[in-house]
């Protein structure tokens, strides 16, 4: 993002802080989420997102194939890291939420977790990434849609279509007059709001976090103006930009936490939805 911010700052002209007649600070806009396409053919375009997606596949599969190609009973360091990842998804996410059948859905959950984690982390990888893939709406939408279709199919197959939708529409154990209010709410919240928030939560966190970082970086570049007409003001501008970069690094650390957390939350919600579909509603 710093590169983008630098471009933005440069586009401001040779102004900068404390330079009279400068264009003033232009914060980064949503345009930084639309890198120009590299190759275009028809409706498809290969952009930075596409490249990073491919890199995501390479990184995830590379890590897992490298760590699990020669597995031993007594694990090496990297193998135990991979096993910890697997056991984390299985024991912390799949089994508590789905129950005994949770092990069957571990491949889906582990795929989602590591894919989203790597895609998020591209936002803080300098030079290569600096653009979280999940900050493009399309990727979370695809993933949430897959999950949405998946848990509905699981629910229909496990409980039977009629019973499954009856349980969603008419929550069992409620006096019938409440259905007048409850049924529309349930339909909206379960069948519409659920997948939408599932996708948008991930997207919005990554989008907002990235915009925040870009703003800090752009502000840092904007305020860095040692060549101001007044030497004292130039020194002050350097101090100001130092604060901005300090904020940038602090929020970068925060972003890393949020990126991991959002990947975890996405997977956890996926597991909860699947668990709700596998087990009949109580």
């Amino acid at each position: 993002m710093s590169a983008n911010a630098h471009v933005l700052a440069a586009e401001d002209g040779d102004g900068g802080l404390f330079t009279p007649g400068g264009p003033g600070f232009a914060p980064p806009t949503t345009d930084i989420f639309f890198p120009p396409p590299i190759v275009e053919f028809g409706p498809f375009a290969i952009s930075k997102y596409t490249v990073l997606l491919a890199l995501t596949v390479v990184v995830v599969l590379g890590f897992w194939f490298a760590t699990t190609s020669k597995m031993k009973l007594v694990p090496s360091r990297w193998q135990s890291v991979a096993e910890m990842g697997y056991l984390f998804i299985r024991d912390q996410v799949a089994r508590p939420t789905i129950g005994k059948q949770g092990d069957r859905y571990v491949p889906l959950l582990i795929t989602l977790f590591f894919m989203i984690l790597v895609m998020n982390l591209w936002g803080v990888v300098p030079l290569v990434g600096q653009l979280p893939v999940t900050a493009n709406t399309a990727v979370p939408i695809v993933l949430a849609l897959i999950v949405y279709v998946f848990w509905n199919v699981v629910g229909i197959r496990k409980q039977g279509g009629w019973r499954y939708f009856r349980d969603i529409l008419f929550m069992p154990g409620v006096p019938w007059p409440f259905y007048i209010i409850l049924t529309p709410i349930e339909v909206i919240s379960t069948l519409i709001v659920r997948p939408v928030t599932h996708a948008v939560r991930l997207f919005a966190n990554m989008f907002a976090g990235h915009l925040l970082l870009a703003t800090f970086a752009a502000a840092g570049f904007y305020m860095f103006n040692p060549g101001a007409p007044d030497a004292l003001l130039g020194a002050v501008s350097v101090v100001f930009s130092g604060f901005a970069f300090l904020g940038f690094f602090a929020f970068t650390l925060l972003e890393i936490v949020i990126m991991s957390l959002q990947a975890f939350v996405f997977v956890l919600l996926t597991a909860v939805y699947i668990g709700g579909a596998v087990e009949p509603a109580h």
Binding site: F44, Y49, A138, V139, V142
Partner: peptide
């Protein structure tokens, strides 16, 4: 959402 990212994703 972009079509290409949907498909490639």
């Amino acid at each position: 959402p972009h079509t290409s990212e949907l498909v490639f994703g």
